[in-house]
Design a protein around this nucleic acid. Structure first.
Ligand SMILES: [Zn+2]
Ligand SMILES: [Zn+2]
Ligand SMILES: [Zn+2]
Ligand SMILES: [Zn+2]
Lengths: 135, 135
DNA sequence: TAACAGTATGTAATAATATAACATTTGAAA
DNA sequence: TTTCAAATGTTATATTATTACATACTGTTA
């Protein structure tokens, strides 16, 4: 553990995994991460999955459930990951985290007659991105 | 294919798989379905997954992405599955499909500055159900 | 410092979820 | 009755994720 690390609060493996995800411009799958970190000494699935789990808890990354893949959090609001929204293009598969106050306010305050108290949500929108709409 | 079927538009395997899911009061996993239909002659994963895929297309069932499990549609509105919302209890794991016009209207008409046209969404709320809140 | 607790790591094995590929059958329409 | 799309059967394999257990590192406190 040297002072060269970008993030003092991340452990070695957590930082390695986070770097991969953050550099990617598309969601990254766990085994793709595993493949890419073999050269750095991470050899087995649990090492990757444990880092992913911790990074999610910290709100540094999110899991895109419909894709079983992981993206770095861009919104910096979601320090602790409890409310996530993504837009997913059905053609090019581009995934973008949605940061929209109207949306998050609406969902954070949503209540229905079930009597359930919602603390957390995950929303995935599907459609066509600007580019793919044109073509 | 006899006249005894409940749903004329479903094939034999689709009906078998749908019956299992509909009878259950909790989300059902694909391999749990597979196990339960062995006695009816369905022997291999693809038979189950193909039925699931078709049932989803028809809007008869939905996949709860965060659980990799399937529930029958109760709302009867979503004839074609394009807008789904669930509440999931973090303790007892009960999953309920949310039918709420305010919510669906809001999400169906949601637009942001990305220029993306949203045709479909899946929303999963997490929290504590009435029962688990008390205990 | 030494003991301790909590967190992180390494490793092997295996479980759970899902798809590919290909042959065959069925159902309904033309 | 030919024809085509949909559905089925089957084997094998790919992909995603966890269990279990041993070891090591970190910071805190007696
Ligand atoms: Zn975020
Ligand atoms: Zn696109
Ligand atoms: Zn529904
Ligand atoms: Zn509950």
């Amino acid at each position: 553990m040297t002072k060269m690390q970008k993030e003092y609060n991340l452990s070695k493996n957590q930082q390695i995994v986070f770097d991969i995800i953050e550099k990617s411009n598309e969601p990254v799958k766990a085994y793709s991460i595993l493949f890419n970190v073999k050269k750095k000494g991470i050899k087995a699935p649990p090492q990757v999955y444990r880092a992913l789990e911790k990074l999610i808890k910290l709100g540094k990354i999110h899991k895109v459930e419909s894709k079983n893949a992981f993206v770095a959090c861009k919104s910096s609001n979601c320090e602790i990951s409890k409310a996530t929204a993504f837009s997913i293009c059905e053609i090019c598969e581009k995934v973008t985290e949605i940061a929209n106050n109207k949306l998050s306010n609406f969902l954070n305050s949503f209540e229905d007659k079930s009597g359930m108290k919602y603390k957390k949500y995950n929303l995935e929108f599907f459609g066509l991105c600007k580019k793919c709409k044109k073509s």
